[in-house]
Nucleic acid binder design. Sequence first.
DNA 1: CAGGATCCGATCGGATACTG
DNA 2: CAGTATCCGATCGGATCCTG
Lengths: 138, 138
Amino acid sequence: MKVSDQANGTNQQNDCTATPLGRAIHLLGDSWVLLIIMNLLRGSMRFNTLRATLNHISSKTLSNRLKLLEELGFVQRKAFLEIPPRVEYHITEKGQELGDVIAALEKFGNKHLSNLPAPSNNDCQLSTEKPPCDQDTL
Amino acid sequence: MKVSDQANGTNQQNDCTATPLGRAIHLLGDSWVLLIIMNLLRGSMRFNTLRATLNHISSKTLSNRLKLLEELGFVQRKAFLEIPPRVEYHITEKGQELGDVIAALEKFGNKHLSNLPAPSNNDCQLSTEKPPCDQDTL
DNA sequence: CAGGATCCGATCGGATACTG
DNA sequence: CAGTATCCGATCGGATCCTG
């Protein structure tokens, strides 16, 4: 059960998109979305920068998620008509509030997922230090 | 990118399991886990009851998630040696704190995912009313 | 009733190549 | 650089059957 490539909600299965919480779960029940939001929360980024930060994401996947987030109004795409082209993605007001969720996640992780045996690999850019997102809005 | 069937963390790809937040994202980046926790937060449930509540989950998937959550210590499995067998799953102290995440999710959903055009289907049992989980701990 | 085993289709996501 | 299109393998998850 993942977020579909397009932001169509016509999934017949089990997305529970009937209620806000269901939709939230459906949306945030996707690691990439979480990761993208997390990084964008710390500042606007260009496509490839973002892609480099999320180490192993393919351009396809990143593109999909970004498109989805844009449609939902959580991320704003700003394209500069230059050569070479430059596109910057940044969080919208709405998207900012996902910081609360991330914060809750982080707090939980720090409390209960810290001292588990780390499984050997270290992939994505997940800085432990607090990003300057407004967590005081909690 | 989903939570693997077993709770092994030996995923070589991109799970970002190095940092607590990464692990949290990895764990909560799964709709079923979120849904299960959500329902268990409202009270202990038996296997099939839980399964009925999460309308379309297969016993396999539910079993996997439950096992994972148990290994991580967020859910406690209590089996009664009766015939027919009865097994109750209930949230642990640790698991309780996932309520914060759920709460954040719900708050966000209510605020930003409420008035979107609902896509026709209504599957899972996602009650809109607040569960009695401690959201004031935020 | 709780759940393990298996089969198998659906989907996702990575790699690559290509375009403006 | 910022994607899109395509191919295709890996994985997940549903259905079914079976057991204690």
